[in-house]
Amino acid sequence: MAQDAARNLSVLEQRQRHRLHEGVKVIDSVTIQASAKRIFEFWSRFENLPLFIGHLDSVTPLSNQRSLWIWKALNGHKQIEWESVLIESEPYHLISWKTSPDSEVHHAGSVIFRELPYGRGTVVTVRMLYDPPLGGLADIFERIVGESPQYNLMNDLKKLRQLMEVGEIPRVDGQPTGGQPEEINPALH
């Protein structure tokens, strides 16, 4: 049983690797205290991705296989978009996608879910490939994914963990600090 599972997993990982062969490649993984089923189902709804992927402004499903991804940078002043096609969806194990052939930007990604025994959570391993575009889009693309894609992915996965485990992303922006003018919160007085 365990051997079969291991073999299946290595096949999945090989397939995951083969999808990505050029451009900027990043890989990272995170362990989340939730079932593979729950995380798989959350990720399968691509419209959830902007909840934890920085700069990804929205994902709109166009059909069962296709979705429109809109990225924004510079406080929303710059935008880039592409159409993604679902390549594989193997319940609770693997999801992979890539941009449609007529896209200006080439991107492919895959995620595998490996549930650990004894309540140790689920390892989520993500691989992403970005093929930087030429011309006018290059600059904005650079801002969205180019500066430190590895760092971005790591942060995105931490946010995914926060969402799956606690349902919210902790924040401190908006809290008081010295040097700001006093403001009254009426609920407190």
């Binding site: 606690v166 349902g167 919210e168 992303i169 902790p170 924040r171 922006d173 908006g174 809290q175 008081p176 600090t177 010295g178 040097g179 700001q180 003018p181 006093e182 403001e183 009254i184 919160n185 407190l188």
Partner: peptide, 12 residues
Amino acid sequence: ERVPDPQILNAT
């Protein structure tokens, strides 16, 4: 210092 009052920022 005098600073802004805190606000609820997250649901919990």
